[in-house]
Each structure stands twice: as structure tokens, then as C-alpha cells.
């Protein structure tokens, strides 16, 4: 009889422990899912569009199958239309051109000569679309490729959409040197509350060459170039008034690496809205654009932003 009491008792406690284990009053945050809510995973290359001719099928691929305003990695695959097998292509050029309703044509920071990845048999490059398709104008891709001695050309209109991931934001501005610049964020696509490697492309609009040149492609392919040996000073802050101009430690300014892109470090101390305040310096150390922001902790006051900044959210 006594033993049965004992067994009941143990059962009671086991049940009690189970109930408690499985039932906290408030649920814990699922941190991985939390970050995923804001930034959808799009790290897979999918076809954006294709052009089918009698001989070749040209397929243009980007992450998630969408071209966004801002920085895009792009792949081009060329296959034999009949056999559906990759074709030996000796070179490929890629040029996006925007045409406004007034008929003005312009391009954007772009890799003109795509590189060939022989292992996976595709061409790869990048483009920084400076606007979305719409009232401002429409975008078309001018692609030339060479098979044997023959050069093929094609033009394909594409849609450029708004980038919803603010971590891949971009900005176009005029510097104190009266030149037009573009800064586009490339990484991190999905930041963490952590030390994040920050990568950006910085480009400059070249002054127009002789307008009497032959075709638009010949002229526009040189419209932007990567800037060399500049420095992008970084001061990340949370603009929310309640955060009182909160910042983070151990950030590093962006400097150019061998890949031509600008690399630095940004630390995000919590999720939410952040502003990357920048100051762009030319190789001589002169300020091209950007202002120092206040460093004091000012609760209740919305953080002042540099005249050169990008807002991000994660």
C-alpha cells in the first residue's frame, strides 16, 4: 500500500515537471526565424529572362530570378537551342541601358566584359541598377557574344524591381568634386547581431566622351568606373529616438581590396533600424561627401544622419 503511494507520488512529480517544462508563460524568441522574417533567403540563382534564337538560347540569371535596384550578381548561360548543351563561347559583353520616355539613354555601374566560369559553363558579372523600371525609364540588356569568329548581338528588355532588403541599399550622389558617385551595398545580405563584414561597391560617373561615337554601347560601356584607393568612413547608429543615437564598437572603415570592392566591418548590437553614416574620402584624404554625426548619447532625440548615409533594417 505504501509503495503504491510512492509510485503515485513519483508520477505526480514527473507530470508536474513535464507540465512546467513544456509551458513557460511566455515563449522564447526563435532567433533564427526572427531574422528570416525580415530578410527572405534568396541565395539561389534563377533565370530572370531568356532569349531564344534559332541557334542559341541565352539565359540571364540572378539571385531569386529577379533584378533589383542596387547591386546584382548576374550569370549568363548560352546553350545550343537544338541540343540544349552549353556552347563554347569565347567572350561576352553585357551592358544595361536605360531609356527614358524622352528617349535619353544612360547606363549604370556594370561589368562590361563578363568572366567565364569554365567549370560551370557560365559567364558571370555584376550590374548596379540605379533605378527601378517604371516612369523613370525602362531597362534593356545589350549582350554580345562570340562563337568561333561570329559575333551575335541581342537586346532584351528586363524589369528592375525595388530592393526590399535594405541591407542591399544604394545611393547616388554628387560629390564636392562635382562628380557623380554611386555607392551600393553588396554584403552582408543577412546581417546578424554580431560583427558583420561590410562590402560595398563605389563607382563614379565618367564625363561623357565624344558624343559622335558610333553606337550607344560603345559610349555607354565606359559611363561608370570603380573608384580607386578611396576610403569610406563608417559610423553606424540606430536612428530611433528612444535609442538615443546608439552606436556599436569595433567598426572598421571600408577600404579597397584586391577585388576592387570596398571592405570594412560593421557591428550591429541588436536587430532593428540602423543608419550607416558615411564620409567618402578621395585618395588624397579630401572629403568628397559626408558629415560627422554627433557621438553623444541623446535619449529621446532622433539620431542625426550624415549627408551621406544608407538606412538598413534587419
Amino acid at each position: 500500500m505504501k509503495v503504491s503511494i510512492l509510485i503515485k507520488t513519483i508520477g505526480f512529480y514527473a507530470a508536474l515537471a513535464c507540465v512546467f517544462l513544456g509551458s513557460c508563460t511566455k515563449g522564447k524568441t526563435n532567433y533564427e526565424a526572427e531574422r528570416g522574417e525580415v530578410i527572405e533567403e534568396n541565395n539561389e540563382f534563377k533565370e530572370v529572362s531568356n532569349v531564344v534564337t534559332s541557334a542559341y538560347t541565352v539565359s540571364i540569371e540572378a539571385l531569386n530570378g529577379v533584378l533589383y535596384r542596387g547591386y546584382n550578381d548576374i550569370r549568363v548561360r548560352i546553350k545550343n537551342t537544338q541540343t540544349n548543351t552549353p556552347v563554347e563561347v569565347s567572350g561576352l559583353t553585357f551592358l544595361p541601358i536605360k531609356t527614358t520616355v524622352m528617349g535619353e539613354k544612360s547606363s549604370c555601374p556594370n561589368q562590361y566584359h563578363f568572366g567565364y566560369k569554365s567549370a560551370d559553363k557560365y559567364f558571370s558579372g555584376y550590374t548596379v541598377f540605379t533605378s527601378e523600371s517604371g516612369t523613370e525609364g525602362s531597362w534593356a540588356l545589350y549582350i554580345n557574344f562570340t562563337v568561333g569568329n561570329q559575333t551575335f548581338s541581342l537586346i532584351k528588355e528586363v524589369a528592375v524591381r525595388q530592393q526590399t532588403n535594405k541591407n542591399l541599399n544604394m545611393t547616388v550622389f554628387r560629390g564636392k568634386d562635382d562628380e557623380q558617385y554611386v555607392i551600393a551595398l553588396i554584403a552582408p545580405r543577412k546581417p546578424n547581431v554580431a560583427e558583420n563584414k561590410l562590402v560595398a561597391g563605389i563607382y563614379k560617373l565618367n564625363r561623357m566622351l565624344d558624343s559622335a561615337a558610333k553606337g550607344p554601347a560603345d559610349q555607354l560601356q565606359f559611363s561608370y568606373s570603380q573608384v580607386e584607393r578611396y576610403t569610406l568612413k563608417l559610423d553606424p547608429r540606430m536612428p530611433e529616438p528612444s535609442m538615443g543615437n546608439h552606436s556599436s564598437p569595433n567598426n572598421r572603415d571600408l577600404i579597397q581590396d584586391k577585388d576592387g570592392l570596398y571592405h570594412g566591418v560593421v557591428n550591429y548590437t541588436m536587430t532593428g533600424n540602423w543608419t550607416l553614416n558615411f564620409i567618402l574620402l578621395n585618395p588624397e584624404g579630401k572629403v568628397i561627401r559626408g558629415t560627422e554625426v554627433p557621438k553623444d548619447f541623446t535619449p529621446g532625440v532622433e539620431g542625426r544622419k550624415s549627408e551621406l548615409h544608407l538606412d538598413i533594417l534587419f
Binding site: E34, V38, M238, S242, T271, N273
Partner: peptide
């Protein structure tokens, strides 16, 4: 041991701020 911190901006419709 787990402790969380979630801050709500004045405009509650905006993204909250989270850290451990």
C-alpha cells in the same frame, strides 16, 4: 540561462529591436 531584450519603437508598427 537565457535572457532577452526587445525594445518597441514609439511607432509600434515599425520593426522591433531585439538582442539577447
Amino acid at each position: 540561462s537565457i535572457a532577452e531584450m526587445r525594445m518597441y519603437p514609439q511607432d509600434r508598427s515599425k520593426q522591433t529591436m531585439f538582442a539577447y
